[in-house]
Amino acid sequence: MSITNTSATIIQPLPAASSNWLRDLVGIAIILAAAIVGYFLFPNNLALLTRMIAIMLFVLSLDLVTGYCGVATLGHAALFGAGAYAAGIAAAHFGVTEPITMIAIGAVGGAVAGLVSGVVILRGHGLAQLVLSIAIIHLFHEAANKASNYTGGSDGLAGITPDPILGLFEFDLWGRTAYVFGIVLLIVIFVLLRILVRSPFGLLCRGIRQDPVRVSAMGASVKRTLIKMYVISGVVAGIGGAFNAVSTQVVGLDSLSFTNSAEALVMLVLGGVGTLFGALIGTIVFIGVEDFVSAANPFHWLTIVGALLIAVVLFAPKGLYGTAAALVERYRKGGK
């Protein structure tokens, strides 16, 4: 190929880029189809599906820092809980009950928590980073517990009564409005995140995960980039937390728990890290199995969930989505 030809064709999109967009469209179509199927298949269990959406947003936010940046954390619920409490306190104590405004306040709360967490956690590496993240979640949890005048302490924060969305769609007893609201939020955020991870900034984060020294030698500040991603992650987690507050109309201390953080990490590993799709699939499978198995066998359900996780980690180390994607790729190559 001559240099002239190269110059002439440079602006043409890559085949890989167009396949990425196609994958995004397929992903959105699947989310929509699953949402519609869920709506009609489980009309009496929309509360569970709505909770799933809030947790999906949380796990997506975790994927940004763990999957794309390689930051190990067991304290990510701090961002989710901060968003939930910010929205809840705004509604219960300051009368801000417009749902979209509550979501925006949750996003800001999550961003601030992301900034604080990021600055602290990113000072360590490896095990130290993990320990710092655990310390962060315990500090957030204790702060929320102590500030019981605002947070309700261990009783939880009640009295959240969101207005109808845009003044038109009232939250109903069956949870239909919350469910549709959640699906819209999820799709919008998912599309924005897919664009983000393919942007030069997203690629830089993936570069940092693979070789931070090299990225630094190329002129990018590793820490500044990671903190930016932590804040973005905080916005997403905060939106998830605020949506949870809006849909359940209560915020409990468990939203700021170590268990919540650890479960999110398990869901991410189950679905597959660094793809965003894996975060969605991991959440659906984990919460779905947890709900089904705990109902079928209330005494041993944790054992069954544990066995499932061991099986996935041992036999599908890339997670459910990563393994499925690898199999499809292998099938495609075999077909050529």
């Binding site: 030069p200 690629l203 993936r206 693979q210 090299r214």
Partner: peptide, 12 residues
Amino acid sequence: FPSLTVEENLFV
């Protein structure tokens, strides 16, 4: 960066 494509490597 081994998991990035050539073009993505250059973008960085």
